[in-house]
């Protein structure tokens, strides 16, 4: 799952050694990878730290809407699959936190920023999962959009981030396919099941399109991020690509994409589609999503209620360290 530049920072005037900066830019332009101990401009470090940590937070918060359905999965098969998927999301969060830490921010600081509400995560997780069909729609659409975002990031300029993305992408395809399979079964089921599938598509379609971030015209950092290979495609390019591959998948299910303006455009070889409600997007970014407060409350509770496990593990390690010293 992925989030894209939700927290803007003002472009900073570079106060850095112009020679080092030029050498850095040349390396990045030549598609070389930058590694943790290499020199990098402060703005690159800051932008990446923000992007990777937001991405990590999104994976962690992303466990909540789906974890919500583990106990109510309709069969043992679905339950085992959903458990594995949610466990993967935790793993993805951990790969990404590790990558972000190599830039000099501690795990503790990042978790604290998430829990205090200072850090952002993908807006998509602030929508509720009302029925089982939502689990299908999330896998199909939300993970589908995430894959679209993440595949190009396997070639991002920062080595640890690129390597984390390779692992994530390998695992993500299962997420999308299990979701689509849920939709296939519902769409081919009773009239009521098909209605559930359609309802889930109706609610998740637009938030999924928002996952690619604001339109290019309102995304002032895009040019800089593309030059630094932190981003490899613009928001609008990826959104278009997502619509073009997803609409036929909806048709295969016999479901209707909830957009009256959706039309195939022969000349451009892609779909024209309606305007996204960006006011809603910015409201959700600000924490006004339908279940934003609930998500953060659940996250903080999980952290606090399990504090004793961390404390016990630390005490156990300390006891053994002392024993080893005494021996």
């Amino acid at each position: 799952m992925y989030t894209t530049e939700l927290q803007k920072s003002k472009p900073v005037q570079s106060l850095e050694d112009p020679e080092k900066l030029a050498a850095f830019e040349a390396r990045v332009a030549a598609d070389e990878f930058i590694e943790p101990k290499d020199w990098m401009p402060e703005a690159y470090r800051r932008t990446l730290t923000r992007q990777i940590s937001q991405h990590a937070h999104s994976e962690i918060v992303g466990m909540l809407p789906e974890g919500n359905w583990i106990t109510r999965a309709p069969s043992l098969r679905r339950k085992a699959i959903l458990l594995a998927k949610v466990q993967d999301e935790a793993g993805h969060g951990l790969y990404l936190y590790s990558a972000a830490e190599t830039l000099g921010t501690s795990r503790d600081e990042m978790i604290e920023a998430l829990h205090s509400g200072k850090a952002k995560y993908s807006t998509i997780f602030n929508y509720p999962t009302l029925t089982w069909a939502d689990i299908g729609a999330i896998g199909w659409l939300v993970d589908g959009a995430a894959i679209m975002n993440q595949v190009p990031l396997q070639r991002t300029s920062y080595g640890p981030y690129a390597r984390a993305m390779v692992r994530v992408c390998k695992e993500e395809s299962f997420h999308q396919r299990q979701g689509y399979e849920i939709m296939i079964h519902l769409a081919a089921g009773t009239a009521e099941q098909k209605r559930m599938a359609q309802d889930a598509l109706n609610r998740w379609w637009w938030p999924s399109l928002m996952m690619f971030g604001p339109p290019d015209a309102d995304s002032p950092n895009t040019a800089q991020s593309m030059r630094w290979r932190i981003k490899r495609d613009t928001n609008d390019e990826l959104r278009q690509k997502f619509v073009d591959i997803t609409v036929p998948q909806a048709e295969a299910l016999g479901l209707t994409v909830p957009d009256p303006d959706l039309r195939w455009n022969e000349a451009k070889g892609g779909y024209d589609f309606g305007d996204v409600d960006w006011e809603e997007f910015y409201a959700v970014v600000k924490g006004e999503g339908p279940v934003a407060k609930e998500r953060m409350k659940a996250r903080r509770e999980a952290w606090e209620k399990n504090a004793w496990v961390r404390e016990a593990a630390a005490a156990y390690a300390e006891k053994h360290r002392r024993k080893a010293e005494a021996a």
């Binding site: 594995a84 466990q87 993967d88 793993g91 951990l94 790969y95 590790s98 830490e101 795990r107 390597r163 984390a164 692992r167 695992e171 593990a313 630390a314 156990y316 390690a317 300390e318 053994h320 360290r321």
Partner: peptide, 24 residues
């Protein structure tokens, strides 16, 4: 090398490594 984990001691580091990097 595949990545890193945080852990208080070697045993828990191994368990975390298993859960994080060898699920498949």
């Amino acid at each position: 090398h595949v990545g890193s984990v945080h852990a208080p001691d070697p045993e828990i580091a191994l368990r975390h490594a298993r859960d994080t990097y060898t699920r498949r």
